[in-house]
């Protein structure tokens, strides 16, 4: 009887230990799952926000190239300005126009214009024209191609990139 009582107690102890272990494992799993899900949710939110920021960057680039500018007191588009500056290699003219635009739109960053041949082949192509109002250009916001009907050689197709 005494033996069976001890054995009963032992069994009870074992069951209790098992229950504790089970609860412990479940708690660990729960903790792990919550941690993973929280981190995951946070990562996904960051990814979504990054995409939204990138979207705004692309919009800024489109707004820039489609914005009106003036030349000899007549209205032209910024695309005309970019193409003209690239064809005449007029960095000063380009800088003046971009500075005005960046100040007007309160943009921080920069813009660079490449010929499509160098842009496609070289790892770090040398821009034909560039302007920035910050120490570091930052990440690329967007890029688009412009056909340059008056361009010669590599300049027949230009790549405009906005940074910020």
């Amino acid at each position: 009887m005494a033996g069976s009582s001890i054995m009963g107690k032992k069994g009870l102890m074992d069951d209790f230990t098992d229950l504790l272990s089970f609860v412990l494992i479940l708690s660990m799993l729960g903790f792990f799952a919550v941690a993973v899900l929280r981190t995951d949710a946070s990562d996904k939110s960051e990814q979504t926000l990054d995409k939204i920021v990138s979207l705004h960057g692309q919009e800024e680039l489109l707004n820039l190239v489609n914005s009106p500018s003036s030349l000899n007191n007549k209205e032209v588009s910024m695309k005309d300005v970019i193409i003209l500056a690239a064809n005449t290699n007029d960095e000063a003219f380009f800088t003046e126009k971009m500075q005005t635009y960046f100040e007007q739109e309160q943009l921080d960053g920069g813009i660079a214009v490449y010929d499509s041949v160098s842009y496609g082949k070289e790892e770090e192509p040398e821009p034909l024209l560039s302007f920035n109002n910050v120490a570091f250009l930052g990440d690329e916001k967007g890029a688009l191609y412009l056909t340059n009907v008056h361009g010669e050689g590599n300049k027949k197709l230009l790549v405009v990139k906005l940074f910020g």
Binding site: Q58, L62, K79, L146, T147
Partner: peptide
């Protein structure tokens, strides 16, 4: 956005 970029380029060529 990709379409808008392409249209921007095409509009300039058409202009």
């Amino acid at each position: 956005i990709e379409a808008e970029k392409q249209l921007t380029g095409r509009d300039q060529l058409a202009l």
